[in-house]
């Protein structure tokens, strides 16, 4: 069978319960988005793992380049002043 006829790959994201983010759980094959949602329901929520499903065709996902991870992410490491622990506040000050 030629590649063109093979169903595209979809990435599946599930919201575990109301109030949580959708989280990536895996992928599956489907010919269209309706089928992708149906299949995601049967493949990834058989044990009540979710209340909402997102599917995205894998070819539509764009990602950061792992080879650039150092220049991409490490500069944030030195900006420790963005974290509350950077600041000295006396112990007897409350509500802060």
């Amino acid at each position: 069978m030629s590649n063109k006829k093979e169903w595209p790959l979809w990435e599946v994201f599930i919201r575990g319960k109301q109030g949580l983010n959708h989280k990536h759980v895996g992928s599956l094959r489907a010919s269209d988005y309706k089928m992708a949602v149906d299949n995601a329901r049967d493949v990834y929520t058989r044990r009540s793992e979710g209340v909402s499903i997102w599917v995205v065709e894998s070819s539509n996902l764009y990602a950061s380049d792992p080879d650039e991870a150092a220049s991409f992410f490490e500069p944030a490491d030195s900006k420790i002043y963005r974290h509350p622990t950077f600041y000295d506040v006396p112990d007897d000050i409350s509500h802060m």
Partner: peptide, 11 residues
């Protein structure tokens, strides 16, 4: 006909 549909019919 494909694994995904196998699971669906079983459901």
């Amino acid at each position: 006909p494909i694994l995904e549909e196998d699971i669906a019919l079983t459901n």
